[in-house]
Amino acid sequence: MSTWGSFLTVSLVSLAGLAVLQAVTFAVGHRIGRYNVVDVAWGAGFVFVAAVAAALGSGDPVRRVLLLVLVAVWGLRLTWHMHLASAGKGEDPRYTDLLNRSGGASVGTVVRKIFVTQGAAQWFVSLPIQVSAVAGPTRGLGTVALIAGVMLWVLGFAFEAVGDRQLRRFKADPANRGRIMDRGLWAWTRHPNYFGDATVWWGLWLIAASAWPGALTVASPAIMTYFLVYATGARLLERSMSQRPGYPEYQQRTSYFLPRPPRRAHDGADHHVRPRATG
């Protein structure tokens, strides 16, 4: 099978699997009466694509396995985190607002606005993994890109996982109820989880770019970063959180997205359960 024939196989199987995953997730959400379960399926969908790429790809096997391991570690942790964050809770206000602005929560609107959008985003963002699955071995300067990609992934994963853990532990303390979380990584950036997410995907892209034509998929991490920063990620949360007492002051002293030292010492407090980047 040709390189592009192999890519077509990986891509179509990935697309079909993501469609099934979103259909099952919709059925679960429809049954329990809330559609934020789509966030739980976000990380799991990427793990599925990476598994397909590793199993059906014709490219360098070492890089296929490496990407599978990195995506699985990131995606399964995120899936479990989102499950814990949403279990027993009501609907995410983002989805309520989205459906209200779209004319109501009819089945067609829910499927189109939430689940089709989420599945399409998963497929597009995962293009570096799909393309890398059929690319040849990493050689020469590509090795530098691969190593840099792994290091960037480690940085992003650490920010995301540690930030989520710090927030979860802070919210579990009744003494912090109603306060603004601004400790640990949250003192360096108002969105360490989103920064970590974006960094993870730039790292995965660098790994894919270590062998041609992986570099051509640069639009995937760029789009992911756009969603995390401007579309349905940080900016959407800022809009609602800015109404909370103490949050405007937190905004003044803490970086919006890219980490930097806080402007001054400050007390800690509560924050928010993050939504996913798309949907």
Rank of each mutant, 00 (worst) to 15 (best):
H271K: 09
V107S: 15
A133C: 03
T9E: 11
K171Y: 00
Q118S: 11
G59R: 00
E249N: 09
G43Y: 12
L152Q: 02
A208G: 14
F124L: 13
L18N: 09
V24P: 06
Q166C: 01
G156C: 00
I207C: 02
D97V: 15
D173H: 01
V144W: 03
S210C: 03
L167C: 15
V273T: 14
T96C: 07
R63G: 01
L8C: 06
W205C: 04
V37P: 12
L228S: 10
L67Y: 00
L18S: 01
P192T: 10
L8G: 13
A234K: 04
L67D: 02
G196E: 04
R94M: 14
P259W: 06
L185W: 10
L56V: 05
T189E: 01
S240I: 12
G203L: 01
W4G: 03
S210H: 03
A187W: 00
V52Y: 06
T138V: 15
R168W: 15
T3M: 08
G268I: 04
L8Y: 06
L12Q: 10
P128C: 02
V229P: 00
T117P: 02
A172C: 06
A44S: 13
A135H: 01
S14G: 10
L66G: 15
W205N: 01
L70S: 09
R190V: 03
R183S: 10
T117N: 14
M1S: 09
L99V: 07
G104F: 04
G163F: 11
M151R: 08
V13T: 15
I223W: 11
